[in-house]
Computed example of a mutant assay.
Amino acid sequence: MFKKLLMTLVLWAVVYPLVAQTQGDTIYHFRFEPGNDGLYTAYRNNGTELTRLLSCVVQNKEAILAGTIPILVDGYCSSLHDEAAARAIARIRSNRVKSELITREGLSEACFTTSNHTSGGDYVTVRIAIPAQPSESGPEQQAEAEKRAEQARLEAEQQRLEAEQQRAEAEAQRARLEAEKQRLEAEKQRLEAEKQRLEAEKQRLEAERQRAEAGHPEHDPYHLALRANLLRWATLTPDLGIEWRIAPAWGLMVNGSWTSWTWDNNARRYALWEVSPELRWYLGKQKRGYLGLLYKAGQFNYKLCGTGRQGDLMGGGITGGYQLRLNRALSLDFNLGLGYLNADYEKYITIDGVRVRRGNETKEWWGPINAGVTLVWKIK
């Protein structure tokens, strides 16, 4: 807008000296209603201005048709927010005024230099640069006037070209803004889709967590498992067992141990077998902790020093423990049993490789009767 105002002032500075040397009125104003492109003669003295303009054209028609007197037409429209629409209205308004001169006085489009603007108001101005008569000025003054008129026409044409350039730049800017808007909208949609995906993933993980807390069969699917007490194996006593989960919360288990070792020319002996059935009740949502009832029976033969002991043992008690899951197939079972054991045995010594009996004894025990760190392999 500043550039347009500056060019208007420059044009006026060039035309004003010429106007001062012309005869009659050379600037005419035609007012238009905001947003309207109709030229109404009854509106704001438009009829009077049109009569004055036609009179001037009649007096200088020959020079106008010859091209020595230019008619400068400037159309304005500032009542619309859209620049393209405002420029189109300004162009139509200029054409309305030119049509009056073309149809009434037989002028052609070549007689006009037209510029259209999107600021400054809602009107059309017509400027006619009429040089001084030869009787009033010499050849030099007439040549100067013609030079100024041509300069004014060139300035007007330059102003029109700059206005066209500004319009092109504005359209390019609007295109860039529209492209940026579409890019931002696409980015917004992508972020919204990513948000929905993350929300779905969050819901899936929450569902998995709830299934884990509820003891879903997926986390404890076995019905049959093999067992090996690693503590017994560490004492060179092979131990194996089997468990049958008759229900999600109930299990029936049987463990067995056996070993037989002699050394120092049969002077030392360590032999044992045991059978331990157990009924378990699994607790909690994940069924990892448990309580159980244990029964134990077996025989033993120990001779680790001078006197050996050989006999039977029997007892039972309560057990408790926890299963730590390693993967889908393996777990570690930590357990401890408390209760009562009864052992009836005979003492003996060995003389020349022959066992010699030294009496019988019976012992009773209250306290820990079983302990284990058991590897559980779920086979079904």
Score class of each variant (00 low, 15 high):
Lys3Leu: 12
Thr8Glu: 13
His29Asn: 07
Leu39Cys: 08
Arg44His: 10
Gly47Ser: 04
Glu49Asn: 15
Glu49Tyr: 12
Leu50Lys: 08
Ser55Lys: 13
Asn60Cys: 11
Lys61Arg: 15
Thr68Asp: 11
Thr68Trp: 02
Pro70Arg: 05
Pro70Asn: 02
Cys77Ser: 13
Ser79His: 09
Arg87Cys: 05
Ala90Asn: 12
Ile92His: 06
Ser94Arg: 10
Ile102Val: 11
Thr103Ala: 08
Glu105Tyr: 06
Phe112Ala: 02
Phe112Glu: 02
Arg127Glu: 11
Pro131Asp: 07
Ser135Thr: 04
Glu136Tyr: 12
Ala149Asn: 13
Gln151Pro: 00
Ala152Phe: 04
Glu155Trp: 13
Glu155Val: 13
Ala156Phe: 01
Arg174Asp: 04
Lys188Met: 05
Ala193Asn: 13
Gln203Phe: 02
Leu205Lys: 06
Arg211Phe: 03
Glu213Ala: 12
Glu213Val: 07
Arg232Gln: 06
Thr235Cys: 03
Glu243Asp: 12
Arg245His: 11
Trp250Lys: 07
Gly256Lys: 06
Ser257Pro: 03
Ser257Glu: 15
Ser260Met: 11
Ala267His: 14
Tyr270Trp: 12
Arg288Val: 09
Ala297Lys: 02
Gly306Pro: 00
Gln310Asn: 14
Ser331Phe: 01
Gly337Gln: 09
Asn342Arg: 14
Tyr348His: 08
Ile349Trp: 02
Val354Ser: 04
Arg355His: 03
Arg358Phe: 00
Trp365His: 14
Thr374Cys: 10
Leu375His: 07
Lys380Val: 05
Lys380Glu: 01
